[in-house]
């Protein structure tokens, strides 16, 4: 992965997002999913470092798929035709409010959940990977390389620079306010008071950052920021494989458009073998 130019990686990632999300056809989704798994393995990340990312994705997939699609039957909106083979008919009433919930888990909806898992899982594989395989120094040059103006691309780079500084400022302010008896843990009152109690932290850090920005802007002007077309010293070079990857991305996107809009191959269907498992 290190040898693939970051610009090519971004192009591929976005082409993948656009392509995969055109389909509900399980055959294509499987193909995309396998492609994503291969790509993810190329990144050679360790489970320990990506665990936090997957925790979030896991939670998202759980709410999307288990709660919304399987339990409440909401998620399959517009894709799964109404009706179908009911697996587990049930209706129950939520206590206290007396809301009646009726739903029937159908085979179709269960299969849809699997398709959703492949589609969302594929997209997640591609996008969770980015921060773990991208050198923070490369962001500015990469976005410049993807046709953003110098000033906007540089903003990203400058942001990285200020993260540790502001992190330290926040810690100092927290200590300074604690010394005045401020206790984060003891927030009393309703939601409004609770949120307002963050002001002693928020205000000094924000205002300090704004005051400091005058000096930073001066320092940049004094070193000719925006005076000429910027050179980005981060080395970015396309190799043949990068061109191949970009070509592949373009083909994937084009192929998907053709498959979905001309051959109408994007649609959802349930394979017979799956149906036979239940019916």
């Amino acid at each position: 992965m290190d040898r693939i130019d970051p610009r090519a990686r971004w192009i591929f990632s976005f082409a993948f997002l656009l392509s995969a999300t055109m389909f509900w056809n399980p055959a294509f989704l499987l193909l995309f999913f396998l492609l994503a798994v291969t790509w993810y393995l190329l990144g050679r990340t360790r489970w320990k470092e990506t665990r936090r990312g997957w925790l979030l994705v896991g939670f998202m997939l759980f709410t999307m798929i288990v709660i919304n699609t399987i339990i409440t039957g909401g998620g399959a909106g517009g894709v799964v035709p109404p009706g179908g083979h009911v697996l587990w008919p049930a209706g129950f009433t939520i206590p206290l409010v007396n809301w009646q919930i009726y739903f029937g888990l159908t085979v179709e909806r269960l299969w849809f959940a699997i398709c959703q898992l492949m589609r969302l899982g594929g997209v997640s594989l591609i996008f969770v990977l980015i921060p773990y395989t991208m050198d923070p120094r490369a962001y500015g040059a990469t976005f410049r390389g993807l046709a953003m103006p110098d000033s906007v691309a540089y903003t990203m780079e400058l942001s990285f620079r200020f993260i540790p500084t502001l992190g330290r400022d926040l810690a100092v302010t927290l200590d300074a306010q604690k010394a005045r008896g401020y206790e984060l843990e003891k927030f009393k009152g309703g939601i409004f008071q609770k949120i307002a109690r963050i002001a002693p932290l928020l205000v000094p850090v924000t205002m300090n950052a704004i005051i400091a920005s005058e000096d930073v802007a001066n320092a940049m002007d004094l070193r000719c920021f925006g005076q000429a077309k910027r050179t980005w010293i981060y080395p970015l070079r396309y190799h043949w494989w990068d061109h191949a990857l970009i070509a592949f991305s373009a083909l994937m996107l084009l192929g998907s458009v053709v498959a979905v809009h001309i051959f109408n191959a994007g649609g959802f269907w349930v394979p017979d073998w799956f149906m036979r498992l239940f019916v």
Partner: peptide
């Protein structure tokens, strides 16, 4: 400037020292 902390623009030393030359668009 007075506060070197605010004058440093690069996350890494190399990038900071290069800042002015990058702005000038040198090779």
């Amino acid at each position: 400037l007075q506060d070197p902390e605010r004058q440093i623009l690069g996350t890494y030393v190399l990038n900071d020292v290069a800042f002015g030359l990058e702005s000038l668009g040198l090779p």
